[in-house]
Design a protein around this nucleic acid. Structure first.
Lengths: 261, 261
DNA sequence: CGGGGAATTGATCTCAGTCAACGGTTGTGG
DNA sequence: CCACAACCGTTGACTGAGATCAATTCCCCG
């Protein structure tokens, strides 16, 4: 299965993870319920509210946010097409953060998918794929901790842009290292713990360095791999290695790593 | 079940989450395998290495770390007694980070526990409890993103100490707001993205403010709730609210929140 | 009783925050 | 179709939190 042009982003992510036969993807998509659309700016879930409906983003960007006492807002993470929203195997956990729409967003209900995974074991191909995706979501979160703990503003911004680039690429939304970035500089600053003014300066810096080009909301990373080396970015492992040869129990830790993007 | 004195930290965490009948806890403990001990400083898992053995910390502190190219080390998170190590429902995911022992550590094997959870649905009380714990781990991670994105060094440090305090309290390791903190100032700095020198200054500041007392590795938070308000800290929800009245489908979002610690 | 890591303190410098102003774009209503 | 408002991006000047460099001092531990 590699003709992914018509697939939903979630299927593309799974197919990218390890080439999956099309019947699995078809089954996956059948487990997704009806879609709903949500206007830019709307709040889809609120911190503490118990979540009844796990969902998947079909289209659009969302972000997880947190409101501080003093009124400032923090952005804790970005949710892109193919990402889960409020997806947990436990049927009734409260949301950890607010989740709001950055753009107009189309969501698909994933209740049936969750139930299916709970019912079958982790050997089922659909369940296995989804569990792996959940692991990748965790890797993405870890990467953002890496980014925030690392100090320079330049590195932080580059690191975030590389992350978004890679994630969008897996969802099929990057062409020639070019993608839509529907975030204001304000929002980028809130995600990186930087002031708008400084964020702007660092962004200009990236442009002057020839790492970045921007026209409207369209961002082009000019030499992503050079930049990646420069800021020591490691992509989450979006692809699995080729399946192990049968009966290979003692594969070395080294070669058993996930392949990088 | 509230006589928790002899229980392993994992059971205490679960019992704290929502009072659990003792047979569930007994079953849980029976699903934990033999224990192993690991000396201070040793590396228990390495980034990228496929994990075969999920484990639970019985005793000691660990931390998840990441090595930067330039040789600096980042601390991405702390693992305390009762926390899972490399626990994922998928049987073969690569570790996202290094995991190393801060102190001598005792781990219990959780392979059987994982298999049990995969086999039964999320309605099983043991599975349900563990899934909730996994959700809490996620909340802890979110809290550390909040901490790192929020700016002042003072707030960050206080925020981290409050987090550790609360987590240890749930594991039964805090008495009168006093607990052991086996971390060097170097390590604290690495976890907060601060230089040792500055971390030291902020720590003195906290002492002068009367928020903190320190003797050797023992930390006492003098007025945790005042400090919590001061730095806008929200504890992860370690306790569930009382069970819903039967058949109560339309409980309001507000009252359906988890109770705070 | 030395030796080495950890904690503490001082001096200096720089990155990034804050305040403030101004240009560009969008969108909305008259 | 124009005018105004609101928001976003950009730039300058100034300030301050926190990094870096460099010494001590304090504990453990062998």
């Amino acid at each position: 299965m590699t003709v992914t042009s018509k697939l939903r982003p979630i299927s593309r992510r799974i197919d990218a993870l390890s080439p999956t036969n099309s019947s699995t993807l078809t089954r996956l998509e059948r487990l997704l319920g009806r879609t709903t659309t949500h206007p830019r700016g709307s709040l889809v879930s609120e911190v503490g509210a118990v979540q009844t409906r796990p969902q998947v983003i079909v289209e659009g960007w969302m972000q997880r946010t947190n409101l501080l006492q003093d009124g400032r807002q923090q952005v804790l993470g970005h949710l892109l097409p193919g990402d889960f929203v409020n997806f947990s195997l436990h049927p009734a956990v409260p949301s950890l953060t607010n989740v709001e729409c950055v753009t107009d967003v189309v969501l698909a209900d994933a209740t049936e998918l969750r139930e299916h995974i709970a019912a079958v074991g982790p050997d089922d191909p659909v369940a296995s794929a989804v569990l792996l995706l959940m692991g990748i979501d965790e890797a993405i979160t870890m990467n953002s901790i890496v980014r925030l703990t690392r100090q320079s503003a330049y590195e932080r911004l580059a690191h975030l842009l590389l992350d978004l680039h890679d994630r969008l690429a897996v969802a099929g939304l990057v062409e020639d290292d070019r993608f839509e970035l529907p975030l204001t500089q304000q929002a980028l600053g809130e995600a990186l713990g930087l002031s708008v003014v400084h964020l702007n300066r660092v962004l200009m810096q990236l442009r002057k360095d020839g790492s970045l080009d921007r026209t409207g909301r369209t961002i082009t990373l000019l030499e992503p791999e050079r930049l990646r080396r420069r800021v020591d970015h490691t992509a989450p492992r979006y692809r699995l290695p080729a399946p192990f040869p049968a009966g290979c129990a003692s594969i070395s830790a080294r070669s058993a790593q996930f392949a990088t993007l």
